[in-house]
Amino acid sequence: MDWLTNIFAISTLLATIRMAVPISLAALGGLFSESTGVINIALEGIILMGAFAGTIITNTTGSPLLGLIMAVVAGTGMALIHAIASVTFKANHIISGVALNLFATGVTFFLALVLTGGSQISVQNSLPKFLGLSPVIYVTVAIFFLSGFFLYRTKLGLRLRATGEHMAAVDSVGISVTKMRYLGVLVSGALAGLGGGYLAIEQANFFTKGMSAGRGYIGLASMIFGKWTPWGAAGAASLFGFSQALQFRISIPFVPDEFLQMLPYLITIAVLVGAVGRATPPAEDGNHFLKEG
């Protein structure tokens, strides 16, 4: 029964926290974007882009901090394209997101081949650990506290959320819907980009093609399961982190490894099936702002 004690070991808890970071950052990113009514499926590609940019910059400058900053910049850049397409040009949010995900998959693989000749790049160094964990983990916790305060207690945060609930009302009091939506989408890109940078630099210590492996989508599912609140999203992301931690740490007798690999994705579906109906998305999710006249 070794595997059973393994599930509840401290090391599994720590692995859960480590695995939950990129998912929770993606979930929070999705929350910022959808607060303003913009669906951001591109989170998946943003994580991948952040992971790639972070890896390259860490290796060329020798500084994992610069790498993480670059991951945030790359994520924000991807989000900017999503905002231009889906807010300014009013393209379908999902199509724009899917296009960006295909783009990220192609570009990162292509550049990895051009720059290194292979599809996997190891990261030379990472940030010094603090109490056994990556400093990014503490930063993530701080970001969640700040986001909770920002979204519910500040004027700008309330305006962001109001945009997702009733665009016309926001517009009627002289607030620019477009600006709010850009802000929400860009913040989502920065957060998911950080998640990607963490994934490559701090967690895996390498970049490999397609390494986001659905974390962006799982982040969106966490956001839904967490009922579009920061703490709900963090809780749901931890559940997924746990399922991913299990996959690497245990091997249950008679259960093939492939089935453990499926677990996070099966749980995502189970969560969506169970959560929806009880959770309400922002009213303007996926809508375009069309000013009359």
Binding site: Y217, A221, P256, E258, M262, Y265, T268, I269, L272, G277
Partner: peptide, 27 residues
């Protein structure tokens, strides 16, 4: 079916089904 019965958005469920299919076919 999951969309109709439980309102689970097909974008996320179809993507999850991709990952499940890949692992299952491999197995």
């Amino acid at each position: 079916y999951l969309k109709v019965k439980r309102g689970a958005h097909e974008v996320i469920t179809t993507i999850m089904m991709n990952f499940i299919a890949i692992a299952m076919v491999q197995y």
